[in-house]
Write a protein that binds this DNA or RNA. Structure first.
Lengths: 329, 329
DNA sequence: CAAACAATTGGAACCGGTTCTTTTTTAGTA
DNA sequence: TACTAAAAAAGAACCGGTTCCAATTGTTTG
């Protein structure tokens, strides 16, 4: 393997001169040409490890994601990937598999790998996270959840909840069932629900009941089926904290002999492309996941170049009315 | 940032001893304990660049995927990720976005980054690929497509096609419509279809018609709608080359006023979890994507350690009968 | 109990670059 | 032409590890 020392020897100059040539330092046109020739001849490529050992930039960006099997994560990732490609960043994607411990580990690992910055698709930000981020000492950007003192880009979850509620009220519904997830996930578990509730409770004679489930479709399905079979349901509108949960609930409704939207109107949050192809098509709030990814790289680039970025940025979303919601009888 | 020299100083030993401790050389239990304590206290992590500089291994594996927004890709990736995590490999995932040019580029980029090996989720293997792989000169494993002279792990696509066909024949169907994708993708575009056809044509009085579409749901939807509205369809069984295409076709059937499975039986290939929650649930062939990912890492580890691996390995799959298929009238 | 051997440990060199400091060359000016 | 400032090049130190070899310590054996 050809090294910088070989090049220097062949060109009759010092290592440092070759290094300067490679990195755009001051080199006379004459020597420049000499070195250039040798480099071409030998097809020399600098060893990136040796390089990164001393120099600080690697042009790599670490991305920590909570799970791989989620359409929203993938959409964000697609956006990140596209922009990173354009800007010449290499991505190191690590999957924390929903475990806080792994998230923390990944932060350290990536920092050691000398990535220029880390983008973190978060479920929640704990004290431990904050500590690790501080220790890592590199640009850090959080997506999807608000974090104090750390730059973040988030969705307008509260507003999305409100939009669903407004739509439901316009259709004349009064009694609601809301499938939520744990409040640990602030964005999905709290904001969406709070937005929904705040709007619904402005109107008189309305009633909301909550059910808590996990993100998994199986859980949501089981829970929904149990409730529907109990026949204690007087709600006519069922709002679900994610599209996937909505899908599971719709399945449960069908399997318990009722139908959508005739007996129940159902909504989700997310707006995944694939789900617009199911029948009936899901009414949901569309989130700009792809845009979020693109914006993330732009923001990260600024951070790496030590430019100012907003501590918090909120992306707006929009209600998509399809076939799973209809007027209250 | 704490280095190996710091640890050595604090523990009162030489750098080399700490290095030996870290890499499992001969260290007495006493010093082992001493070093262990310091390492824990300081939360020391070796700098991977310095490490890779001298040692040739980086413990990084490059993964090239064709797209991020595909459930099958993600399932494979999950399997890869889990096993890699267990074995102490770090992953560098790059998204080639379905472009051959980027696939080639990624092979070179990863080779430069000194990954120990590359796992390639392929759509097709061209001459250019083969050349790049040869030049890279590192362990290379292809998933999902057969490649001559390069180790690969593939699905039994031909067998899957046969299974679908057998199921259809058992239900008494005679006239078939098959939504395929371009033959460029050998596994999805040729094998599945050939398996299906070979089985169907064993029986007399059967008839198969082909439609070619892309992987995109929109394309499939438009095409299906055009055909269905044309009322030239005498098929009663529609087989689709992927689950997503099946989803789009079902939507088109509904939107053109027919229903599944009453008017048409429909099948896919893939077996994504999310799709088992749609109504009616899709009859499909389940592919062991996750297992494929796990096996990929195991195989890659062997290759990195210069052990023999099979040039071609085929994973079997199984038919899952759900609600979208029924007896022919 | 000393010799012979094995197990540990320390020290220095090295991996392939970058960067700081010093020396040499070149160019500009009086 | 001589002197000075600026540009270019060389040389050495350094980044944070690994690895080879020599030195030390501990153990076994005759």
């Amino acid at each position: 393997m050809v090294t910088i020392a070989d090049i220097a020897k062949k060109a009759g100059v010092a290592k440092s001169t070759v290094s300067r040539y490679l990195n755009g330092g001051s080199v006379s046109p004459k020597t420049k040409k000499k070195i250039e020739k040798i480099v071409e001849e030998t097809d020399y490529r600098p060893n990136s490890f040796a390089r990164s050992l001393k120099a600080s930039r690697t042009n790599m960006i670490g991305v920590i994601i909570p799970r791989l099997d989620s359409p929203s994560t993938n959409a964000v990732l697609s956006g990140i990937d596209l922009k990173a490609q354009k800007k010449g960043f290499q991505l190191i994607i690590t999957n924390a598999n929903q475990q806080e411990k792994r998230e923390i580990e990944d932060i350290y690992t990536l920092a050691k790998q000398k990535v220029d910055g880390i983008i973190f698709l978060a479920k929640q930000i704990t004290e431990k996270h904050a500590e690790a981020i501080k220790k890592a000492g590199i640009p850090f950007l959080v997506l999807g959840q608000e974090a104090k003192h750390i730059p973040s880009i988030i969705h307008d979850d509260y507003g999305a909840g409100q939009q669903i509620a407004q739509h439901a009220l316009e259709l004349g519904h009064k009694k609601f069932l809301y499938f939520t997830v744990s409040g640990e996930d602030k964005a999905v578990g709290q904001e969406r629900r709070n937005g929904f509730y705040s709007e619904v409770s402005k109107k008189e004679n309305t009633k909301v009941e909550w059910v808590e489930t996990s993100f998994h479709m199986n859980d949501a399905y089981e829970k929904a089926l149990a409730i529907l079979k109990g026949s204690e349901v007087d709600a006519t509108f069922i709002a679900c904290a994610t599209d996937n949960i909505a899908l599971a609930v719709i399945k449960a409704i069908h399997d318990s002999g009722s139908s959508v939207p005739t007996d129940f109107s159902v909504t989700g949050f997310g707006g995944y492309e694939a789900l617009s192809f199911i029948s009936p098509a899901l009414t949901t709030v569309h989130y700009p996941y792809f845009d979020l990814g693109e914006l993330a790289i732009q923001t990260m680039e600024k951070m790496i170049n030590k430019k100012e970025v907003a501590l918090k940025r909120t992306l707006s979303n929009r209600l998509i009315i399809k076939e799973t919601t209809t007027k209250s009888k």
